[in-house]
Design a protein around this nucleic acid. Sequence first.
DNA 1: ATGCGGCATGGTATCGATACCATAAGCAAC
DNA 2: GTTGCTTATGGTATCGATACCATGCCGCAT
Lengths: 327, 327
Amino acid sequence: MGEVAARAEVGKITVSRVIRTPDKVAPETRRRVQAAIRELGYVPDRTAGALSSMRSGVIGALVSTLGDSVFASTIDGLSQRLRGAGHELLLTSTDYDPALEEEAVRTLLGRRPDGLVLTSTAHTADVRRMLAASRVPVVEIWQMPDDPVGHVVGFSNRAAGHALTEYLIGSGRRAIAFLGGDRPNDSRGRRRAEGYAAALEAAGLGAPRPVSRGAGDLPNAEFGARALREARVRWPDLDAVICVSDPVAVGALCEARRTGLSVPDGLAVAGFGGLEVASEAALDLTTVAFPGAEIGRRTAEILLHPRDHTAPQIVDLGFRLIRRATA
Amino acid sequence: MGEVAARAEVGKITVSRVIRTPDKVAPETRRRVQAAIRELGYVPDRTAGALSSMRSGVIGALVSTLGDSVFASTIDGLSQRLRGAGHELLLTSTDYDPALEEEAVRTLLGRRPDGLVLTSTAHTADVRRMLAASRVPVVEIWQMPDDPVGHVVGFSNRAAGHALTEYLIGSGRRAIAFLGGDRPNDSRGRRRAEGYAAALEAAGLGAPRPVSRGAGDLPNAEFGARALREARVRWPDLDAVICVSDPVAVGALCEARRTGLSVPDGLAVAGFGGLEVASEAALDLTTVAFPGAEIGRRTAEILLHPRDHTAPQIVDLGFRLIRRATA
DNA sequence: ATGCGGCATGGTATCGATACCATAAGCAAC
DNA sequence: GTTGCTTATGGTATCGATACCATGCCGCAT
C-alpha cells in the first residue's frame, strides 16, 4: 500500500479510502490512485484489514458432510449472496461427529469469522460455551433445533416425515416401512422417522416398521436396495416404503423394479430431499423437497444485515411434498 | 494473548510457543500456560498470526459450480487432508464464467492464501498475470490443460470420451450420438465430445452426431430426456447415446424406458462421472468414473509439501470405464 | 475581518500475533 | 577460569491495513 501511495503521491490512508469509500476522495486524486493500483498490480491484503478493523469478511460454514450433495444448493445460495457483499466462505465438515465439530468450531473461531453457519445438530457443552463467549452470530440451518444456539433457518424434519406418511396413508397404504432413519448422530433422519411413527400412531396403524442402517451403512442406493429386501422378508404385507433420503429411495425403487414388483401398484416408494434425478424427467419419484438454495440466501441475509442484537430469528421455510409416479 | 501470558506469569512469546511448538517449552511452564488458556477460553487469532508469519493457513478453491455435486468428493478429500495439516478451505464458485473467475481470483488473492485450486478451464490474461505475480502455488484439477498455469492433478477428458466411444463401437454400436458436449465454457464436456468424434473417425463411422445444449440448458436429466427425443428424430437408426454427464444419462435412460425402448438391446446409454445413483444397486448405468476424492487428496499433498519450487507437477490420475447394464 | 463548518487529506497508534535477536542459566571440556 | 554449547525465556520491531484525531483550505454568514 505504501508503494501505491508513493507512486500516486498521496498518503497511505488515501489509498485505503479509494478502495473502501471512493466517494470520499476527490475525483482527480482517485484517478491517480487507481492508476497506481493498476500499474503495480496491487491487491489489498484483507488479513491485515481484518486485524485492524476487527471484521474479517469471512463466514465460517460447518456442514455435516461434503461427500454427498445434500447441502450443495444451500452452500451455493449462501456463497453467492456473501460474495455480493464482499464476504467469503470458509468451509469445513464434521462427518456428523460432535467431537470433530468441536475441533472445527475452535479452528473457525480462530479465524475471527463475522458469522458461523452450522448444519450439525448436536453440540457439545464446550461448543456452546465457545460460541457464546465469542459473540459471533450463529445460524443453524436445515432443521428446527430444540434448543437453538442462535438464529435458525430451516424446516421441521418431523413435520416432513409426518406429512409424507399421512399422504401415503391417505392414498390407501397400510403397511408402511421406514428405511434408515436411526443413526444416532443423524438427527435429521431421526426426526423424519419420528414424524412417520407419530402419523402411524395417529391413524391407528400399529407399530412402526423401521429398517436400521448399520454403523457402516451410508444412506445410499445400495443400502436402499438391501433395506427393501429385508423389509419384504420381515413384513410380507408391505405396501409402501418411506426412505430417509432420496438416494436410498432410488435404491429401493430400482430394487423393486428389478424384482418385478410394480411401483406404485404393488409398492409405493417415497423419499426426502428433492434430489435432481428424482425429477419427472428421470425417476419420477415422490419426495419431500426442501428449499436448499433459499435456506442459503436467507442465512446470508441474516448474517449480513443483523436486525437486532438481542433476539435470535427463527425462520421456518417449510417443505414441499411432491407427488409423482412412485407413490 | 497478553492476558494469558500475565495469568501464567510468562512472556507473550512463551504463550505463542506453547501453541505452536510445545516441545520447546519446559513441561512445568507449558502446563501453567495451558491451564491459563483453558481458564480464559483463549482462542488464538489466526488472522494476526497470518499477518506476521506471512502464512495464512488458507487454501483458496475456485470451483466452476457448487450447485451440483460433481466436485463434492474432491472438495471433501481436499478439505480433510488440509484440516489434518492445520489449513482451511476458502471456497468460491465461478459458474463457468471467466469474468467471474477473474473477480474471484482477485478476491482470493486478497486473503493471501498459501495455495489456490482451480477447476475452471479458461483463464483470462489478467488472471494469469495476477497468479504469476502473487507467486502462490496453483493447482488446476479435473482436467489436463493445454497451457497449465501451475501444477495439475487431473485426467484426460478427451481420452475418457475416446475410450467410452471405442468401447461402444467394440460392442457393435454404429450410430452413436453425443448429448450435450458443446457449451463454450464447459471445456471438460467439449473435450469428451472431441474424444468421441476422434474415435468415430478412427473407426470410419462417419460424422459425429451431437445434440446441442442450449444456453439455458443445465446438464441434467430433463435435458437428457429431451435430447434423446431429439436424437431419435434426427437419426432413426440410433443405437447408442453417450451423455456429457451422468445426470444427463439418467434422463436419457429413463426417457428410453418410458417410451418402451429396450436398454441396452435397442439403445445403449452411457455417461461420465460415476454418479452414485448410477451404481449397480440403482440404475446400473455404464459410465466413466473419475477419481474425485483422490484428486482432492493429491492436490492437498502438493500444496502442503511443495517438492520443488521450480518444476510444476503434472499428475494424470486417469479414469475408469465401468461396464454395467445399460451399454 | 472574524469565525465557523465542511471537505480533502495526513499522521500516529493500534489490531494480535510472529521473527529475530538477546539474555541468562546450566553444564561439559579444555 | 574461560570458552562454548544448549536450553528456556523475554524484548522489540514488524506484518499491512484501519480507527481516530488533527490539519489545512475554502467559502460563506455574521
